[in-house]
């Protein structure tokens, strides 16, 4: 059976994003950054509006907006003692609302739903190559800085005392997430990007004994969800993004049950 070109590009991009989302999602879970993921993705929508108004390439505008948002979050995170969830909520929802309002004001006939829930099947060859390149870059960065980043997750002070540039590591992580979010927007849409980060990582947590295994399994689980979601989208004409997320939720349930059964049987032995 031959795969139509558009489906091939869509599949490649979605798999690349799922693989990148594996280790990044693990960090999001470890550092409790789920809300940050939401804020970044809402920033992506603002990027769409910005691109439409400024008349520049939309993808570029999204990337710029996500990076700016990540910088704002980084500044906000500098004082860990201050309760900043309210500030985050303000930033996040203002970005979402401003994005929606300005897109509708721009007058162009833009399909907002495509941005909110993803429009995977319109991926072009050029998009696919770009996403593959970006994903590869992020993975390489994560491999190089894996150990120091992990030590930062364990304890900031300990890492800093051992000479790790903790602020740089945090910035690197947030910028990687920001770029991944900017490109994942096309796959699952603004509202579901965080799901792509945290659901596979949470599933793999149940089955992993080392941080590396958790990151790796999260990538695998993400890929299975992509394949399942896209198959369902192809044959039953369901929206691709939400189908992928639903599949990863189903995999979480599966992993959860498997874990319970394993624990139960090992206890009885």
């Amino acid at each position: 059976m031959l795969i139509p070109d558009f489906l091939l590009y869509a599949l490649l991009s979605a798999l690349a994003i799922a693989i990148t989302a594996g280790p990044l999602g693990a960090f999001v879970v470890w550092q409790r950054l789920a809300y940050f993921g939401d804020t970044l993705s809402h920033g992506a929508l603002l990027g769409v509006a910005f691109g439409l108004f400024a008349g520049i390439n939309i993808t570029l505008a999204i990337v710029i907006c996500c990076l700016l948002m990540a910088t704002a979050l980084l500044i906000l995170m500098r004082n860990p003692n201050q309760g900043h969830d309210a500030m985050l909520g303000l930033l996040s929802h203002t970005a979402l609302a401003a994005g929606l309002v300005s897109i509708s004001l721009s007058g162009t006939s833009v399909d907002i739903f495509a941005y909110l829930f993803g429009d995977l099947l319109t991926t072009t060859a050029q998009d696919a190559w770009l996403i593959l390149g970006i994903s590869l870059g992020i993975i390489i960065l994560l491999v190089i800085f894996w150990q120091p980043m992990l030590l930062c997750v364990i304890d900031q002070n300990l890492a800093k005392a051992e000479g790790i540039p903790t602020t740089l590591m945090k910035a690197l992580l947030l910028f990687c997430i920001a770029i991944m979010v900017a490109f994942a927007m096309r796959i699952v849409g603004v509202l579901l990007i965080t799901a792509l980060l945290i659901i596979p990582a949470s599933s793999s947590r149940l089955l992993s004994r080392t941080p590396e295994m958790m990151a790796f399994l999260a990538a695998i689980i993400g890929c299975i969800a992509v394949l399942g979601g896209m198959a369902s989208s192809y044959w039953y004409d369901t929206p691709a993004g939400p189908s992928i997320v639903l599949f990863s939720s189903a995999l979480f349930l599966l992993a959860f049950s498997a874990k319970k059964i394993i624990d139960y049987t090992s206890k009885r032995r």
Binding site: V29, V153, D155, S208, T210, P211, M213
Partner: peptide, 9 residues
Amino acid sequence: ISINAQLPL
């Protein structure tokens, strides 16, 4: 130090 329970270590 308090380590997040989600980190298998």
